[in-house]
Simulated scan of single mutants.
Amino acid sequence: MDNEREVDQATRRAFFDQVRRHTGIAMSERKWTLLEGRLRRRVRELALPGYRDYLHVLEAKPEEVRDFIDLVTTNETSFFRTPRIWEYFAGQFLPRWFETHGGTPLRVWSAAASSGEEAYTVAMLCEEFRERHPAFRYRILATDIGDAILRKAAAAHYQGRSIEGLRQTHPDLLARYFSATDDGFVAAPALRANVTFRKHNLHEAARDIGTMDVTLLRNVLIYFDAAGQQAVLENVRRAMAPDGVLIVGESESLSRFDMGFAFEQPLIYRNEVRP
Score class of each variant (00 low, 15 high):
196 T>S: 15
233 L>S: 03
125 L>H: 01
69 I>H: 09
271 N>W: 05
210 G>W: 09
203 H>Y: 11
168 Q>E: 14
115 S>W: 03
170 H>G: 04
6 E>L: 10
67 D>V: 00
167 R>A: 09
117 E>T: 01
74 T>C: 01
186 V>I: 15
158 Y>L: 03
167 R>K: 06
110 S>N: 09
170 H>V: 06
22 H>E: 00
104 T>P: 03
27 M>A: 05
131 E>I: 05
110 S>V: 07
243 D>N: 14
92 Q>L: 11
255 S>W: 08
197 F>T: 06
259 M>S: 12
157 H>I: 05
133 H>Y: 01
204 E>Q: 14
219 N>C: 06
113 A>R: 02
248 V>M: 12
267 L>P: 12
193 A>N: 06
227 A>L: 09
79 F>H: 07
51 Y>W: 08
87 E>K: 08
128 E>T: 13
14 A>V: 02
11 T>A: 12
95 P>H: 07
20 R>L: 00
71 L>F: 01
71 L>C: 04
204 E>D: 12
259 M>H: 11
86 W>L: 09
79 F>N: 06
273 V>G: 11
112 A>I: 11
231 A>E: 14
124 M>C: 04
160 G>C: 14
122 V>I: 14
70 D>Y: 06
74 T>P: 05
186 V>N: 06
196 T>R: 15
34 L>Y: 12
144 D>G: 00
18 Q>N: 02
243 D>T: 12
154 A>Y: 00
199 K>G: 13
244 G>V: 08
201 N>T: 08
168 Q>R: 15
211 T>R: 10
75 N>L: 10
46 L>I: 04
102 G>V: 07
70 D>H: 07
206 A>L: 15
182 D>A: 15
221 L>Y: 06
132 R>D: 11
53 D>E: 04
2 D>I: 01
70 D>I: 09
135 A>C: 13
153 A>W: 04
9 Q>V: 10
64 E>I: 06
206 A>M: 15
97 W>V: 07
164 E>C: 01
35 L>I: 05
94 L>Q: 05
183 D>F: 14
227 A>Y: 02
85 I>P: 04
145 I>F: 01
216 L>T: 00
55 L>N: 07
100 T>S: 14
1 M>N: 10
62 P>G: 01
207 R>L: 08
90 A>T: 10
178 F>E: 09
273 V>L: 14
15 F>P: 00
141 L>Q: 02
184 G>K: 14
213 D>C: 13
71 L>R: 02
65 V>L: 04
37 G>A: 02
266 P>C: 01
273 V>W: 12
223 Y>S: 00
212 M>A: 15
159 Q>K: 00
104 T>K: 10
99 E>S: 04
247 I>Y: 11
